[in-house]
């Protein structure tokens, strides 16, 4: 758990990004984006982002579409989905295909996320 670990959180709800940042900034260097497109920009602008956590349901580009796109450029980053939806076939498939590391459900559980991120960073 290093404070300089850069983590990108993508969610179209500003409250979600605000709260996520408030809770995780003690542990990570949290960067937030309001959409997949902004997420891509943030990835291009910031080097060494190791973790990307994205909401599933977003306008224009959903979480998996964004991650699929991002993975093309940044294959070494570990990706996660944090969604208010129940796990879907699409997400299961993404986990099976190693597109994402795992999936979290809203409301988020800090411990769960931290443990998974630490696992991913090993």
């Amino acid at each position: 758990m290093a404070k300089d670990t850069k983590l990108l959180y993508v969610d179209d709800e500003p409250i979600n990004t605000m709260i996520f940042e408030a809770n995780f900034k003690r542990n990570y260097h949290v960067i937030t984006a309001k959409s997949g497109i902004e997420g891509m920009e943030k990835l291009h602008d910031n080097s060494n982002i190791l973790i990307v956590i994205s909401d599933m349901k977003m306008p224009e580009m959903n979480g998996l579409q964004f991650i699929t796109q991002a993975k093309k450029y940044y294959p070494d980053i570990q990706y996660f989905i944090l969604s208010g939806y129940e796990i879907t076939e699409e997400i299961l498939e993404a986990i099976d295909n190693k597109l994402i590391f795992t999936y979290f459900r809203k409301p988020f559980n800090m411990k769960e996320i931290e443990t998974a991120v630490e696992d991913a960073l090993k």
């Binding site: 979600n16 969604s83 409301p107």
Partner: peptide, 23 residues
């Protein structure tokens, strides 16, 4: 499923918010 998503998001606000306050 839609309602769940819609409820989960505000729940996330509350949960995250209270977590932040606690911290």
């Amino acid at each position: 499923a839609g309602i769940a998503h819609e409820i989960n998001n505000p729940l996330n606000f509350i949960h995250g918010g209270i977590l932040a306050i606690e911290n």
